[in-house]
């Protein structure tokens, strides 16, 4: 807004002598400002309106959600209570937190040393390893799902649990390794050399020097991994679908729809409740997240 006022004020002929050329330029920049910001508002509507509709529908009663009304009357706040009272909803929360929380910790702990080695050690096969990491990162999970499923279910009797999804995270995650490596590359070697001069081994250097400096990178990796687990649908569908006690929110949400048929208001309330934590986390950790996205593509 301030910009508009400035532009208007500057263009005011009473404030002093303004040449016609300057006036045209200012008028042009004002028009430009209006054009850019109207486009911005239009785009914002595109991005935000779906959320608005979802939230509004989640507050309607069942009848109204099936009509063409857009505004709830009356507001049914109890929809949210009813979602929480659904059998299993709290279990899905618990399972999702376990999968996302434990998975994230395991991923960071197991990926960091690998990323460090790939970024800072010189060894034969380093380039090949990196290629393989990238290949694994790009590999659709469905490529290996048949043998993996048979392995977990038939050999280890772990179908109906989330362990087949959590345990692999203790063995490094390709995407996290790659992202951390990109970040660690930006840490100047001088810091590491200094630590070694002080007599630190590689492990001490990693823990005492690299980790504190790499906190933003680690935060980004942790967030990505947390969101990945939170959003994962295919994994729980394959391994946990047969046991409702192991369902996660993403998987449970889809079954919630099937149990509630056309109760779109309840389904939308559940949808909002699944989206909300992700968005809250984002607001607290926006910077780390955006940095992470940038890191994956740009700072090579």
């Amino acid at each position: 807004m301030a910009q508009v006022l400035d532009a208007v004020k500057e263009a005011d002929p009473a404030t002093g002598a303004v040449t016609p050329a300057e006036r045209t330029a200012r008028r042009k920049s004002l028009l430009n400002w209006i054009a850019v910001h109207s486009l911005g508002v239009a785009a914002a509507l595109f991005f935000v309106l779906p959320f608005v509709f979802l939230v509004l529908t989640s507050l309607m009663n069942g009848q109204q959600a099936l009509t063409r009304d857009l505004w709830p009357h009356p507001f049914e706040w109890s929809n949210y209570q009813r979602v929480f009272d659904t059998d299993g909803f709290l279990t899905w929360w618990k399972n999702t937190l376990l999968y996302a929380g434990l998975g994230t910790v395991l991923t960071v702990v197991s990926s960091l040393p690998v990323a460090y080695a790939l970024a800072k050690f010189r060894f034969r096969g380093r380039h090949l390893s990196l290629m393989l990491v990238i290949s694994m990162m790009m590999l659709p999970p469905q490529v290996v799902v048949i043998p993996m499923y048979l392995f977990w279910a038939k050999q280890l009797d772990l179908s109906g649990t989330l362990w087949p999804l959590i345990i692999p995270m203790a063995f490094g995650d390709a995407f996290s390794i790659f992202l951390l490596r990109q970040f660690l590359l930006t840490i100047p070697n001088e810091y590491l050399d200094a630590a070694k001069v002080d007599g630190c081994g590689e492990l001490r250097t990693l823990l005492k020097v690299v980790v504190p400096m790499a906190k933003p990178g680690i935060a980004a990796v942790a967030l990505f991994q947390f969101f990945y687990a939170w959003n994962d649908y295919f994994g729980p569908q394959i391994y946990a679908s047969e046991n409702p006690a192991a369902w996660t929110l993403s998987y449970g949400l889809e079954s919630f729809k099937s149990a509630h048929h056309t109760d779109w208001n309840l389904t939308m309330a559940a949808t909002v409740l699944v989206m909300a934590p992700v968005i809250l986390v984002f607001f607290f950790a926006q910077k780390a997240f955006v940095e992470g996205v940038t890191l994956t593509g740009v700072k090579g």
């Binding site: 279910a153 038939k154 009797d157 179908s159 109906g160 679908s241 047969e242 046991n243």
Partner: peptide
Amino acid sequence: DKVNQALRAGGSNA
């Protein structure tokens, strides 16, 4: 689908 899968997997949750 789930029935078929669980019958194949067997095990404690089947």
